[in-house]
Simulated assay, not measured.
Amino acid sequence: MKKRVTIHDIARKLNTTASTVSRALQNHPRISQEMRRKVQQTAREMNYRPDEMAVNLRKGQRNILGVIVPQVDRHFFARVIRGIEEEAGTQGYHILIGQSYEKVEREVHLTEKMGKGVVEGLLISVSLQTRDYQHIQRLIEQEVPLVFFDRVPEEVHADSVVIDDFEAAFQVTEHLIRSGCRNLAHFAGPNHINIYRERSNGFLAAMNQYRLKINTDWMLDNVLTKETGYRAMKFLWSQRIKPDAIVSSGDYSALGALLWCKEYGVEVPGRMCITGFANEPFTSLITPGMTSVEQHGFEMGKKAASLLLERVQGKYSGQDVRKIVIPSELHIRESSSRMVCKANKKQTKPHQ
């Protein structure tokens, strides 16, 4: 790999100092016109390119935004990062990405490192383990601009961008009920995380509105992975009374349930309807295709970056916390497209 040309290389060639070269490249009036011409011509001949980040640091401008996500190999977070990067790039900013890997210790480490003057502001989606927010409060005390997205610690006074998880889960549940399902189970996430609490609340609200019995044994906590979804489906099918639908808080646990059904001959959607949440790419590729909720991560990322940059650049310095709600979208696919049987032709009416 060819070594990058520096101002020191140009200085050696012209038998001058690096500081003279630096000033000449900036057209400093203290440098003669002839020297400026020589330096700039030599720089072109040597294919010199200034280090933009170093230039910004010398000016006291880092132009870097930090992004902390649980993991980048989820389609949703990848789309959020792309949205952040696009919005930041249009305003001359770079992004520095850190992954917590769902570990609170890692999240604390990242906030401490990035908060020490490395970045001008932080965009964060908290880990599943995060229950204490002292590391976040320290950032606020240090006046580090913050914006949260998706997983938001509601105890923290900071801007945020989310979807209406309650309404999205309500719509999924209502779709299943209107398709003829009556015995619904729910794969929940950790209740201390806002998005999973709201998704569970949306599920319960729809069940109550349609006056359907809620079986608490079928409200299964911390079922978010393919493996836990597989085991949860095995448990549900071992019950004397079996559910006819699953509302999952995530796509991977729904996939685990679907794989168990395929392995043991439980027809989907004939005997079991399954829905996910996040609209991962595989949901439209598997058979049957999986009904899921699109969270519009790209748009969420752009909005989150825009909020942060307004604070970083001093365009908004208000004390009021701003919250943007991005519309979600229900994608109905084969995994929940059950034909309502004759016995269920008369739809259950919601309780007014």
Rank of each mutant, 00 (worst) to 15 (best):
V152S: 02
T130Y: 02
R44Y: 04
L122R: 02
G89Q: 13
D73G: 10
E155H: 00
M114T: 00
R131M: 12
E52A: 13
E112S: 13
R36H: 10
A88I: 01
I84T: 08
R131C: 09
I81K: 00
E105Q: 09
I124G: 01
V108D: 12
I136F: 08
E112L: 13
M53Y: 06
Q137L: 03
P145H: 07
V104G: 05
F77E: 01
K113P: 05
V119H: 02
R151A: 08
E86D: 15
N63E: 11
P70W: 06
F76H: 10
S100I: 05
R36S: 10
R49D: 03
V67P: 00
R79E: 13
R151W: 06
T130E: 04
R49Y: 07
Q137I: 03
V67E: 01
E85D: 10
N47W: 09
V80H: 00
E105W: 04
R37H: 09
E120P: 02
F149N: 01
L57C: 01
S100V: 08
K116V: 11
K59S: 08
I124S: 03
L110C: 05
R138H: 14
V80Q: 01
Y101M: 14
V144R: 02
L110M: 08
R74E: 14
K103I: 03
V152Q: 02
K103S: 06
I95C: 10
M114P: 00
V69L: 02
P153M: 01
D132F: 09
K59T: 04
H109I: 09
L123A: 12
K38D: 08
G66I: 05
Q41T: 15
M46K: 04
V118S: 13
E154Y: 10
L139C: 07
G66K: 02
F76Q: 09
Q61S: 09
K59V: 05
V69E: 01
P70N: 10
E86M: 14
Y101D: 15
M46S: 06
E120M: 06
M114A: 03
R151G: 04
R138V: 09
R82Y: 12
V118D: 12
M53R: 03
N63S: 14
N56E: 04
H109G: 10
I81M: 06
Q40H: 11
N47F: 10
I68L: 15
V39E: 08
R138Y: 12
T111S: 11
V108E: 12
M46D: 07
Y48R: 03
K103D: 05
K103P: 00
Y101A: 13
N56K: 03
D51G: 07
H109M: 14
V118P: 09
R79F: 11
R44G: 04
